[in-house]
Design a protein around this nucleic acid. Structure first.
Length: 484
RNA sequence: GCGGAGUUAGUCUAGCUCGGUAUGACGUCAGCUUCCCAAGCUGAAGGUCGCGGGUUCAAAUCUCGCACUCCGCACCA
């Protein structure tokens, strides 16, 4: 199933849809999650908490989305999270000015250079618009952060372009009050904002999006002193260098493909997490980024990517950020960020696992959606613990007291399970509808129920049915919908 | 941001050339029927035709602007 099929499902079944869609001035790059989408997202995040945060004894925080200007002076976003651009006076085409200059003249001007340097190079080389030969306006910076004005005087502040800045800024307090000890993992789920030039493809390129970020603070001298590494040493990961290779985490470290056990450990638990989301791991890879591709703060970078019908999608950026962030904030704020590790005073280094939630949810949908032609149905084979509706409760027919019996059973389980009650229409049609939103189980109340207090339990993927006792419904569902 | 294509009910769609406030299907809802896998019958709801201006007695239709979606370019932590 391809992108369009997922999009159609999303719109028709309430997974996600455009924000502000009834108004003409709605902007691109903003989407809402509907009921099914919220259910899936909540369950996905619960799995994330279990498999990463709790597994590794991390702490979770929830930071402010608007942060002060100093934060982004220290983080480098004010100067580096911006592209120098230039606009044609005639046809209004916009170009990356550094790229334009290097293409036409072979003169390399770093993108962080003074704007006047670009203007000078343009006029000295008499560069004109490649589209229409028109002249250029003065170069300017396009910063991808959204600026906001605080209070009546509009004091400048910014919507955070990545959630992790909260974690870095909060580090001194967290470390002191939470009895911190290296390695120290802090996690956060929240929204980030980037003023993308052209957002596209619904959840894949948003201006307002969810991230689940983990920052692990560590002693840079102990990157191979990782006891927990044995938990993942045999975990298989797929690594893309020049070619794609499948290997265990242990092999990856021993062959120096991953530089140390510390990084390998986190790639390992991340792979184990994604395995449980239902994403087809045979269509995934950790891609090592080259010097030019890496973010300005990254020393070592692996992207976790998944293959979809519109190409390889970056779901997670795994960056070894060294002391870039804590060092920057320490310098700017004069706050102390060094901590004691054993008898050593260190400025911790940071390894981050920066996950795009929206993209991950899209990938799950695409990998789980299938066209079951044999049975004339569309099936979303979500893992039961991720499904927004876990169980449908259906009466075979409404009369003869079956409706009342069905209502009773629904009432008995609905607080505990995400359930959906349905009495109307043909039973097959109701099963099809549940299949399409990914509901793994359906309980059907029929005439036999009234005689022996049993119901049928239908399995979405196999379409098989078993009779179980009404008294067993809870324990059976509990087992079948449990997180792994 | 540039170029191209598009936008009519929840979804797909007819109508647009040649102006007269909209067609069909699926889906949804109610009832009947059936009684375990999208059957059938009857009925109903759902559209300021993307938004805004212009021309006209009259605009889904002609015209201009804008927005959004898709494709390509550029951009992309």
């Amino acid at each position: 199933m391809n992108y369009d099929d997922v999009m159609k499902l999303a719109l028709e079944r309430g997974f996600y849809f455009p924000s502000c869609e009834i108004y003409g001035d709605a902007h691109a790059g903003f989407w809402e999650y509907g009921p099914a989408g919220v259910g899936l997202k909540n369950n996905y995040l619960e799995l994330w908490r279990r498999e990463l945060v709790r597994r590794d004894d991390m702490l979770e925080i929830d930071g402010s989305q608007i942060m002060s200007q100093s934060v982004f002076e220290a983080s480098g976003h004010l100067s580096s999270f911006a592209d120098p651009i230039i606009k044609c006076k005639e046809c209004k085409s916009t170009f990356r000015v550094d790229k334009l200059i290097s293409e036409k003249t072979k003169i390399e001007i770093p993108e962080s250079a003074d704007l006047l340097d670009f203007d000078k190079a343009i006029s000295e080389n008499n560069l004109k618009c490649p589209n229409c030969k028109g002249g250029f306006e003065a170069a300017r910076k396009f910063n991808m952060m959204f600026k906001v004005g605080i209070g009546p005087d509009g004091e400048p502040a910014y919507l955070r372009p990545e959630t992790c800045q909260s974690i870095f800024v909060d580090f001194p307090r967290l470390y002191k009050t939470m009895r911190g000890k290296l390695p120290f993992g802090v996690a956060q789920i929240g929204k980030s904002f980037r003023n993308e030039i052209s957002p596209r493809q619904s959840l894949l390129r948003l201006r307002e999006f969810y991230q689940a970020e983990i920052e692990v603070f560590c002693n840079p001298n102990k990157l191979n002193d990782v006891e927990k590494f044995s938990d993942v040493q045999d975990t298989v990961i797929r690594v893309q260098l020049d070619e794609l290779k499948e290997m265990s985490c242990k092999e990856a470290v021993e062959s120096d493909i991953i530089p140390n056990k510390f990084v390998a450990y986190y790639l390992g638990i991340l792979a184990e997490f994604y395995e449980k989301t239902g994403i087809d791991m045979s269509r995934s890879r950790f891609r090592k980024l080259g010097e030019k591709e890496k973010a300005f703060y990254a020393e070592i970078a692996f992207d976790f990517e998944v293959e979809t019908t519109i190409g390889w999608l970056e779901l997670v950026a795994c960056n070894y950020r060294s002391d870039y962030d804590l060092g920057g904030h320490a310098k700017k704020s004069k706050e102390k960020f060094e901590v004691m590790d054993d008898d050593e005073k260190v400025l911790p280094h940071v390894f981050e696992i920066s996950m795009g939630i929206d993209r991950s949810l899209y990938s799950i949908l695409e990998h789980c959606l299938r066209d079951d032609k044999e049975n004339d149905r569309i099936v979303l084979s979500l893992k039961p613990y991720l499904a927004p509706i876990q169980v449908g409760v259906l009466s075979l027919v409404k009369k003869d007291g079956l409706k009342e019996k069905t209502d009773d059973i629904y009432q008995a389980i609905k607080r505990k399970y995400d359930s959906f009650l349905d009495h109307s229409g043909a039973i097959g049609r109701r099963y099809r509808r549940l299949d399409e939103v990914g509901t793994p189980f359906a309980i059907t109340i029929d005439h036999q129920t009234l005689q022996d207090d049993t119901v049928t339990l239908r399995d979405r993927d196999s379409m098989e049915q078993n009779r179980i006792k009404v008294s067993e419904i809870d324990s059976v569902l509990y087992k079948k919908t449990a997180f792994p």
